[in-house]
Design a protein around this nucleic acid. Structure first.
Lengths: 226, 226
DNA sequence: GCAAATATGATAGTATTACTATTATCTTAG
DNA sequence: CTAAGATAATAGTAATACTATCATATTTGC
């Protein structure tokens, strides 16, 4: 799977970076280690100074790639959702049956990322954990409307719309396709978080996956056409 | 409704404050205006210095009540969930029919708070908006396990368990009662946020309420006993 | 192979934040 | 009316979130 995607470059809004981190070794190192460092210490404690030290570089050099850590987070999460989008499109292409297609789509969006010998500098397993812990912080801000207008959440929005379409393909009369799609996407991050930190608030664990919960939920709420 | 609750004091974990803000006029003013100020400028831009200025008091005086703004947020959200719990218990008491009881419960948890002549110093309408925008930030941190052990999320946990029980009372064989309860609670905050900032990702608006979406969802996924 | 351009590194500096500490003043209960 | 307790004012510290400048590598274009 990975090999197929190894050469694909995920498109990210150009206003999220000052200089494209994919354009240099240092840029890639910044992206690679920012994921690891945010995962290690949490977004609040993460600083460009600490990142510079970690990669034997300099705070000022990091600033040459990203305006601030908020934009870096938006960059990382855009990359993640873009990567998920590829997986979604790929995994659901050529599936004719709408129900099967939707289930496969939910499967892709809700599964936790499995370790995989990775080729690129980005560790998707860790990035997935970063998204679970930090994604909400990227939009729960006073700047959200301005940033949304600038297209900083475009990839996520597009993914949610794709899921909505798959829902409508199964049941075109379902009255809440957008809300269901966004509930699945946000809800799966939340369930993954709960199983790590609030295990009494979820049935999900090593055996029971968020996928099962959401597929059960969606199957029962949608009316299948005869 | 409000009058009934006017005299009830909501119990909050004592380690969330240094000095009980309910014990003095200044303490109440701190709570009252912190809600307004966090709503105005967002949690990231909110500081104790700005709050001190706003209430014609002093940064150092605020610190005598709360260790830091994170604990203040935990205090405010605990108050909110405690207040919701009273409403839930009150609104569902004496309802025999489990399905009706559950629907009423969901109704209470998902409705947006209506303006109401308020008696206490806390403006619940604004606090509701603060919870929508900031609650996730209170637990998406590296300190979550330690703080959860200290009981800082006890009220929220208890509310989620209550909802879970109501779900099980309708359908004891439903395999994901905790996940469904937590999805409703987190999901409703998310839907309220989306309708303000990402209207293409939700059907909810002035006419269609999150309540309708979640009641529809729950009704269709639970099997009613004959 | 070398000069010019570009990238990176090192250092310094600023305003703000998130506090702690100390002292002064105000309020109020006995 | 005094003493205890609460609040206000001020100062200070370390860290954060940057900006600016200059020096030193590294690359590349000829």
């Amino acid at each position: 799977m990975k090999n197929l995607f190894a050469s694909i470059k995920i498109e990210i809004n150009k206003n999220l970076y000052v200089k494209d981190p994919e354009s240099s070794a240092l840029g890639k190192k910044i992206v690679e280690h920012s994921i690891l460092l945010i995962h290690e210490m949490g977004f609040e404690h993460f600083t460009f100074k600490k990142l510079g030290a970690k990669i034997n570089s300099n705070e000022s050099s990091v600033y040459r790639y990203f305006e601030n850590k908020h934009k870096l987070l938006l960059y990382l999460t855009s990359w993640y959702w873009g990567w998920k989008e590829y997986q979604l499109v790929f995994a659901t292409a050529n599936i004719e049956n709408p129900k099967k297609k939707l289930e496969t789509g939910i499967q892709v969006l809700t599964r936790s990322v499995e370790r995989d010998s990775f080729i690129s500098h980005i560790d998707e397993v860790i990035l997935n954990k970063v998204v679970i812990n930090e994604y909400s912080k990227s939009f729960l801000s006073k700047e959200v409307d301005k940033e949304n207008k600038e297209g900083f959440f475009a990839v996520y929005n597009r993914l949610a719309i794709r899921l909505k379409q798959m829902i409508l393909a199964v049941d075109s009369s379902y009255p809440f396709p957008s809300s269901l799609a966004s509930t699945i996407m946000e809800g799966t991050l939340h369930q993954h978080f709960l199983k790590e930190h609030f295990s009494s608030l979820t049935e999900c664990n090593d055996k029971i996956l968020p996928s099962q919960f959401f597929i059960h939920l969606v199957s029962s709420t949608l009316n299948l056409p005869k």
